[in-house]
Amino acid sequence: MDLDALAGCLSSSACLVTQTTSGLIIGMLLFLVAVGLTLIFGVLKVVNFSHGAFYMFGAYFAMTAYQLTGSFALAMLVGAAGTAILGLIFERVFMSRVYGADVLMQLLVCYAFVLIFDDVVRIIWGPEFKSMGMPSAFQVMPLFIAGGVVPPYYLLLIGVALVAAIVLGIGLSRSRIGKVIRAAAHNPGMVSALGINTGLIYGGVFALGGMLAGLAGALAAPVRSLTPGMGFSVLIESFIVTVIGGMGSILGALIGALLLGLIRSFGSLGFPLFTEGLMYLFMVIVLVSKPTGLFGREAA
């Protein structure tokens, strides 16, 4: 425990800015993964235990596209689109068979795919750590805000995630397709009776969730190292996010992810050995005081 370091950081604006931005990028990446998880759960009523694999594939797709074309924008696009297609296939061929089945079955099918996907990555890209490297467009002088160092790429990452959050939030509440999705979450039988193809909606939601996780992976690729199995810790953390924020709530996922990101970045100063423990502790406190999560509805 190193409370002096924590107090020292809290009293210096430079350190405060640095830690807050690093907390924000952790939080924003977590948000993109968690919001897909919560969306899929909200509509399909299954927890996609293999969601971390989409994050992993997004990162690897982006790295390969960047190495082949040298274009950062294209890399992001390939990362997101590739995982969307993967999500669609995965949902239509496998997950659609276990809707309404025992939780055990759903977990087993996803567990099987966690094993398979990790090995597929190992076969295609190799078992060693890989890194995509920072694109040259972002290899510029970092910004100095109130004495703190902020790499410009961090701002892009936070911006993209915020745009995704706003588009999702407005899209789900205002647009026609958003209303259909919410209706399908509420009563799929009635929606299909109205002549809407619910299978298509389910596939689309799964693809959207996979795409968001893939986008998170692609955005993370320049700043994190890539390894088979990298998706699993992200999955656990984003699940903690959804538990804290409340399953099925987009705002909850955003708040939960940001809180967790800040806990991680400041916790690593004050409690270097217990950073992960702090997240769990926070989750337990939320669960005990409000079992449905901060923004969850009753009997979700």
Binding site: F94, L108, V109, A112, F113, L115, D118, D119, V120, I123
Partner: peptide, 19 residues
């Protein structure tokens, strides 16, 4: 060395095929 794939396929066979 890729026993994850084999194990995964066997799990799928039991979970989706035999149930």
């Amino acid at each position: 060395e890729y026993h994850g794939i084999v194990l995964g396929v066997v799990i799928l066979f039991f979970a989706l095929g035999l149930r």
